[in-house]
Simulated assay, not measured.
Amino acid sequence: MSDYMTNDLDERFKPGQKKKKQKNESFGSLMTSFFQQLVRDGRLRSYGACPQCATGTLYAFYDRKNKRARSLPACPTCGYKQTNGQPVQSQAEREKLKLIAARKDAVNYLINSSVFTDKTVVEKDFGNFKIKSDKQRQAVKVAQQIIQDVMAGNPVNAMFTGPTGTGKTHLAMATMYEILEKSRYHKRCIFVNYRKLLSQIKQGMSDPEAQKKYGHLIADQLSKADLVVIDDLGSEINDNGTVKQATQFDIEQITDIYDGRVGKCTITTTNWTGRDLMNIYGRRALSRMSEHSMNHIFNFEGIQDQRLLEAKS
């Protein structure tokens, strides 16, 4: 026991005070109070319940000057002491490390499971989403509603529609990142550029390795992920703005994806209107896309092409 700890005990049990303390407080409660005071003073740190007796608390002396533990945690109730030689970590430090590990896992899952055409999309978040108009402010408000409903555990189908370059993909990614952060990275998220995914699936028909990879993505990961962004839906049809029905193969693929997403959160970005999507993919697919979509749809029509603005600046 250190000298300052002995002195504190001596001070607490001075002659003339001992009898009074014994009458009003048990020795155990006095010791608990004493250790709690040392924790408040920063001279001890608490490391949770004792694994041996379960009733006591592990404490370790703390060097306030050098900001590190000076001993391994020990239990004053039963005498248990850690002897593993590992650096002592506070509860806050352990929680921080757990959060870092969870973030690493969630980001790795996102990167390795997603289908990108441009990997700079992973850099898009609310921090660099520029709000220059009331319409963009309204778009962010819809995104915040999506986040709120997902975090409340509600199934959500969201849709961002409108011309290219207006920020649909950016806002979808920002929404995904916010949900990841608010869930403390416990949710699993995937981003899929639909045109590229469909191209890879078709390539897999003659490439067994590609078929295995993207077939697994459709059948397993896209149906199990907590949140999926399906980006640029309908871009595989054509680029001239003419609505035409998708092939039966394409319709089956998109229907399978949305059937597997029932009860989860899916954010879709597209240049087409809802009526266009029904003409392209049929009523059943549109019905799946539209479930739980109230307050989760936003049309970016009227927002300037941000890519052109950046190119001119």
Results as ranks from 00 to 15, higher is better:
D226F: 11
L308I: 14
F116T: 01
G260P: 11
Y80L: 08
G42M: 02
V88L: 00
A139F: 07
E291S: 04
L171W: 01
L277A: 05
M159D: 01
K104E: 11
I267Q: 08
S46W: 02
D8V: 07
L9C: 06
H292D: 00
N157H: 11
A60M: 00
K130R: 12
C75H: 01
K19I: 01
T32M: 00
K65N: 10
R64S: 10
I280Q: 05
M173A: 02
T242W: 01
G215H: 09
T55C: 03
A92M: 14
R184Q: 13
K104A: 10
Q36K: 13
V107Q: 10
F35T: 06
N238E: 03
A102E: 15
L233G: 06
M31F: 11
V122S: 01
Q82W: 08
G79K: 09
Q200V: 05
D149W: 05
Y214V: 14
L277D: 06
Q304A: 15
T169D: 06
G263Q: 00
R195L: 06
D232H: 09
Q82T: 12
Q37K: 04
P87I: 09
I303N: 02
A49D: 03
Q306D: 05
E209F: 05
L222A: 14
R43C: 04
M31N: 09
S183G: 12
D10S: 03
D256T: 15
H170T: 08
G16D: 08
F126I: 08
Q203D: 13
N24L: 05
S206V: 14
K18H: 02
M176N: 06
C75W: 01
D41E: 07
Y109S: 11
A152D: 11
F126R: 07
A92S: 15
L180I: 07
K124S: 04
T273S: 11
S2H: 03
L309V: 12
Q37N: 04
G16P: 08
L97R: 15
K98R: 14
E252F: 10
D220M: 10
L286R: 09
K213P: 09
Y47H: 15
N112S: 13
N240L: 10
D134H: 02
I179G: 01
C50R: 01
V88A: 01
N154F: 02
V229C: 13
M289P: 13
S46A: 10
Q221R: 15
F129C: 11
S199C: 10
T175N: 05
F298W: 02
P155D: 08
G241N: 09
G302Y: 08
Y281S: 13
K224I: 15
S113A: 11
Q145R: 07
T273I: 03
S114E: 05
K312P: 07
